[in-house]
Nucleic acid binder design. Structure first.
Length: 141
DNA sequence: GGTTTGACATTAT
DNA sequence: AATAATGCCAAAC
C-alpha cells in the first residue's frame, strides 16, 4: 500500500471513530488514537480532523457527518488553531447541551466530571488506582 | 524539495 | 512542580 493510501486509510479510520462519539459527549485526541490501536499518534488525529472535507465536497466523510467538535485535548480544553476556531467549537458543543466554561486565561474547557466525556482508557495496572479514586475509565487492552 | 510547524500525549529530567 | 525531550507525520512554507 502506498504512503498516501495509508494516510487516507488512517484518516478514514479517525473519521469513523469520531462518528461513534455520542451526541452531547466529547472525547480526546488521545482516546481516538488509542481506540485505533495507535496510542502514539494523537497528533495525527488532529491532522486528520484539520483536513476533514467540507460538506459540499461529496466525500463520504465530511464536516456534516463527522462530529469533529466533540474532540478536545487531554486537559479537557478546546485546542485553538486559528482566530475564532475555539469559540465556534464551543458554540457547536453548547448547541448540543455540553456546557463549556472559560477559565481565567480565556481558555475554553469542558469539565468531564460534570458534563461527561468518553471515559479514559487505562492500562490494567492503573485501573485499580483509578477505581479507588472514583475516576471514570474503561479498561484498556 | 528540505525544513518547519502543529486540532497532542506521555515520559523523562 | 515545571520544563524538556520524544514519537508521529501531513501540510505549509
Amino acid at each position: 500500500m502506498s504512503r498516501s493510501e495509508e494516510a487516507e486509510t488512517w484518516a478514514n479510520a479517525v473519521y469513523a471513530a469520531v462518528q461513534e462519539i455520542p451526541h452531547g459527549k466529547v472525547t480526546t485526541y488521545g482516546h481516538i488514537a488509542l481506540l485505533l490501536g495507535e496510542p502514539q499518534r494523537p497528533r495525527q488525529v488532529g491532522v486528520s480532523l484539520k483536513t476533514l472535507p467540507n460538506a459540499e465536497s461529496g466525500s463520504h466523510f465530511h464536516s456534516g457527518n463527522v462530529p469533529w467538535h466533540r474532540v478536545i485535548n487531554a486537559k479537557g480544553m478546546i485546542s485553538h488553531r486559528g482566530p475564532g476556531s475555539a469559540e465556534r467549537q464551543a458554540e457547536a458543543l453548547r448547541q448540543e447541551g455540553v456546557q463549556v466554561t472559560r477559565d481565567g486565561m480565556g481558555e475554553l474547557y469542558v469539565n468531564f466530571s460534570l458534563y461527561g466525556w468518553f471515559p479514559k482508557v487505562l492500562p490494567s495496572e492503573e485501573a485499580e488506582d483509578a477505581e479507588n479514586d472514583g475516576e471514570l475509565f474503561v479498561q484498556g487492552s
